[in-house]
Simulated scan of single mutants.
Amino acid sequence: MRSTLAEQIDALLPQTQCRKCGFTGCKPYAEAIAQGSADVNRCPPGGAAGIEKLAALLGVTAKPLDPACGSEQPRLVAVINEADCIGCTKCLPPCPTDAILGSSKHMHTVIAAECTGCELCVAPCPVNCISMRPAADPDWTMENAERGRRRFLAKTRRLALQEADKTERLNRQKQMLAKVKNTKTQL
């Protein structure tokens, strides 16, 4: 099975889903590169090595990382100061890989092996109990990227199923209300 250019580009990205490139995730960025509407130098997690791989794939000259997107740094993971966590759950929705565990009014924690280091959980925290620290394995690997991709896709599927279920429940409720209304008007 042949893959599209966008899929080939996406396969080279670190799958952090960090949005630092200006797109909503790695796949939209890959699609923009494939369409020629984005440059190969917008991924800080991929850094210089990632830019080189993308440039080689596309047969273009590599450029330095666009400073507007951030700076290259070792792989990071989120760490929650559990003593300060108030269990507000505001960090859960932005996590692209469901790497944060916790529930309302209970302490949260990060599964370090599943964290892509995207930093999307930091800003929503009202008590600033989330910090970013160097990962135990500071270099991005294809295994890191593939694990991040699988978890991101699993979360995306889960959310789509939840939304479909919610829509179905609302439609059933509307139908029931319409029946009740019709019954009352007939009386």
Rank of each mutant, 00 (worst) to 15 (best):
residue 70 G to D: 01
residue 104 S to H: 14
residue 72 E to F: 04
residue 18 C to Y: 05
residue 113 A to W: 11
residue 98 D to G: 15
residue 10 D to V: 11
residue 114 E to C: 12
residue 119 E to V: 09
residue 80 I to L: 02
residue 51 I to L: 12
residue 35 Q to W: 03
residue 15 Q to L: 03
residue 74 P to V: 09
residue 139 D to A: 15
residue 99 A to K: 03
residue 99 A to T: 06
residue 94 P to F: 00
residue 96 P to E: 05
residue 121 C to W: 00
residue 21 C to S: 08
residue 97 T to E: 14
residue 117 G to K: 03
residue 9 I to T: 08
residue 9 I to L: 07
residue 58 L to K: 04
residue 84 D to L: 14
residue 95 C to A: 09
residue 84 D to P: 04
residue 66 D to A: 06
residue 128 N to R: 12
residue 22 G to F: 00
residue 100 I to K: 05
residue 80 I to D: 01
residue 9 I to C: 09
residue 115 C to P: 08
residue 54 L to M: 12
residue 40 V to F: 03
residue 92 L to E: 02
residue 83 A to K: 10
residue 17 Q to G: 03
residue 58 L to I: 01
residue 102 G to L: 02
residue 13 L to K: 04
residue 101 L to K: 15
residue 47 G to I: 03
residue 65 L to D: 04
residue 106 H to P: 12
residue 89 T to L: 05
residue 60 V to A: 04
residue 74 P to L: 07
residue 42 R to N: 12
residue 135 A to D: 14
residue 95 C to L: 00
residue 16 T to S: 11
residue 48 A to M: 13
residue 61 T to D: 08
residue 21 C to P: 02
residue 91 C to F: 10
residue 139 D to K: 14
residue 25 G to N: 06
residue 137 D to L: 14
residue 98 D to M: 13
residue 69 C to I: 07
residue 66 D to V: 07
residue 84 D to A: 14
residue 10 D to Y: 14
residue 79 V to Y: 05
residue 73 Q to C: 11
residue 104 S to Y: 15
residue 80 I to P: 01
residue 27 K to D: 10
residue 115 C to R: 08
residue 122 V to A: 01
residue 16 T to N: 01
residue 57 L to P: 04
residue 102 G to R: 10
residue 47 G to Q: 05
residue 124 P to V: 00
residue 101 L to E: 15
residue 20 K to D: 09
residue 121 C to T: 00
residue 60 V to G: 02
residue 50 G to I: 06
residue 76 L to E: 08
residue 71 S to C: 13
residue 27 K to A: 12
residue 63 K to Y: 02
residue 98 D to W: 13
residue 30 A to F: 10
residue 66 D to C: 05
residue 36 G to F: 01
residue 36 G to Y: 01
residue 46 G to N: 09
residue 62 A to D: 02
residue 120 L to C: 01
residue 32 A to V: 05
residue 54 L to P: 09
residue 104 S to T: 15
residue 8 Q to I: 06
residue 74 P to Y: 02
